[in-house]
Design a binder for these strands. Structure first.
Lengths: 219, 219, 219, 219
DNA sequence: AATGAATGAGCCTTCATTCAT
DNA sequence: GATGAATGAAGGCTCATTCAT
């Protein structure tokens, strides 16, 4: 199978080459300002080649998003394999999420861009379906960590895990969004002085989710 | 001056007519998929008419955003005029923000759309400058409420007001963003079952910002 | 008739007001870059008012051209009324032509602009017909001066007057055209150093049209 | 390298195909009335294709002009390679100029069109720079012929060569301009009866530039 | 009579996508 | 498989002209 194997490997390489270029370009110029030509040029490939690997621009975007999710899920698995308590695992998961989404080039942009049209994802696209199931999996993983934390006492047990997960998830996204917003403001805006670090938001909320010391064990 | 007055009034009406149509279309199709023609058609006006009121598409967008901010600021003033304590004012402000941003057609989209390109706002556009100063004013108002709350004891005094404001602000935005995301997911996604109500996120975080009962004040 | 008279006079004033503005704007921005709005604004009139006096942009242009021709013809009449010999009259006529065509704002542009489309002038327009007959009259006047010069011995008699007139006419136009060309060249172009004065060209050609002294055929 | 070669050749062909169409259309309708769509249709190409070869309308015009200049310069070189005296070379150069500028479709129009706006040429366009240097070269060549004529006795030595060149140049342009003007006049205009041949104007002026027979040298 | 708001045809230009090589 | 020339739909914007006031 060596020939077929090589073929397969080369095809995979090309695909990744394109995805990397797309990630870079989409994130840099924004989804609708990025052109297929930009991507092809940056990937050092012909424009037509892109269409051998992706049906259209939308599917290419989905491919990028799925790629990001995959590496994120891989990192999630690492975290889950560790021996931290639930709270710490949760913190680590969220940080991994924030990092993957926000590392330049800002992957977060890609995801958000797509949400803005309000059109449901095209279920016919392979990557689109993969992307949706990945979202569910990411969310479920976070919920799992919360439940673990509640079981091992590192997190308040009174919050439904999905509610808690959602709060954390949205808080992180809000922080990431702020960083995009900040870029559009002039340097002298009062909002420009904030770091908007996701880790701070995570820590703050996690703090609120820790069990209240049975205060007032009070005599 | 009835003639000049009527002219002025009519002009204002047209402008609002266009802004309403633009708000609707921009929010429905997303900033870059919305065309000036769409807006004109929805406003039941000729394409050229839009350009009598707005220099270009960008300024039209800014006009919409400024309009939203203005009504939000008006609501803010109402809140500030009330006699609630700082914490309650803060909650009311944030709810007003969430409501204004999220009422269909989703105004939030507009703001976010513009952030995605990463281009700084064109300072030459009148509305653009107005928009930036409004952002600052909105943020400052929230900070003010926090400080009031810290002064009257309804909020923990140990958080810098700007940090706290930023946390609340980003949390609300994250929630709003989630609602956009949810629309792109199929109805059977696990995330679709969440309400994603901004008020819940606000309440949760405010709770974390309330003064800890002077635990152990007890002797 | 004082009322009707005043009406008539005012109407004439308005018309001239518009023509002046049009002359200025057309010459400054070029025919196709000049907008009706530009003209109206410069005339301190409403845009619609222009259409009360001129059927459309084309007729307005024709009106301007006819106006220029009229003042040129008036000047021609002055020259013809003088007591110069034919050659001197001819020189004076050509100079008057060059000056009228080239005085800033460059009227010459207007005439040339219109020639470029290659479309015959719209015979239905009143001004268009007037313009054409004026051209003929201008040309005829020049021919007349040549014939006078040939009769009074100040010009060579061997050139058909129409041929001679055409040569002078085109030479002057060529000079005027050169001045337009020069404006488009960078200051360091070798052509930029020339004055391109029409009077020099006129003098040179007139010199060639003077009778050759029966040079020393005589002993 | 037959493949690369063929590509190159085809590209050149397409470019010329477009230039031909553009020359035709620009000359027929005038610069500002001609649309890119007109050009594309006449070239039997898609509209977008034009932009693969020319950055924009302006550069396309420049391309046409440069093409005309190039063939004119080639003809100039032929003339200069001959063994005529200076006066005859000069006559041949001017005739070549007139022919190239005036052959239908009238190239002259193109050049003139551009001069009318009074905007300096966009130095950033490649073809624009080429065009300017070609103008200088054309002019210099004419000057050179004059100087040769003055040296070999076929032309009067008392005229500065640049002055003489300018007079000839403008006279030819004036003639060409007249032909454009004539097209706009009705067939019954008195001016319509003239041939307006450039060669006649050239001959006339050259005659005036020939040395005066050493009149009366004769005893 | 004068106005200027409204119109929409039409322009230049871009870019996702196709297809012959 | 890889390419990039070609395409044409579509977009933002302008402006001559009309018409209700």
């Amino acid at each position: 199978m060596s020939v077929a194997d090589r073929r397969e490997r080369e095809r995979e390489q090309r695909r990744n080459q394109i995805l990397d270029a797309a990630k870079h370009i989409f994130a840099k110029k924004g989804l609708s300002l990025a052109t297929m030509n930009d991507v092809a040029t940056h990937a050092q490939l012909g424009k037509g080649t892109l269409y051998l690997y992706f049906k259209n621009k939308e599917e290419l975007l989905m491919g990028v998003v799925v790629g990001l999710q995959s590496s994120m899920l891989a990192r999630f698995d690492e975290v889950l394999g560790g021996d931290q308590n639930g709270c710490e695992q949760l913190r680590a998961l969220l940080r991994a999420y924030a990092e993957h989404m926000n590392e330049p080039p800002h992957a977060f942009k890609l995801a958000v861009s797509r949400w803005l049209t309000g059109e449901p994802f095209d279920g016919e696209l392979e990557n689109s379906a993969a992307m949706q199931s990945n979202i569910a999996r990411l969310f479920t993983t976070v919920c799992g960590a919360i439940e673990r934390g509640q079981a091992d006492g590192s997190l308040r047990p009174d919050l439904p895990s999905t509610d808690a997960a959602l709060k954390l998830w949205t808080a992180v996204n809000g922080t990431l969004l702020f960083r995009l917003q900040r870029q559009c403001l002039p340097p002298d805006s009062p909002l420009s002085s904030f770091s908007g670090k996701a880790s701070e938001a995570i820590d703050f909320i996690l703090e609120a989710m820790k069990p209240r010391l049975a205060t007032g064990a009070k005599t």
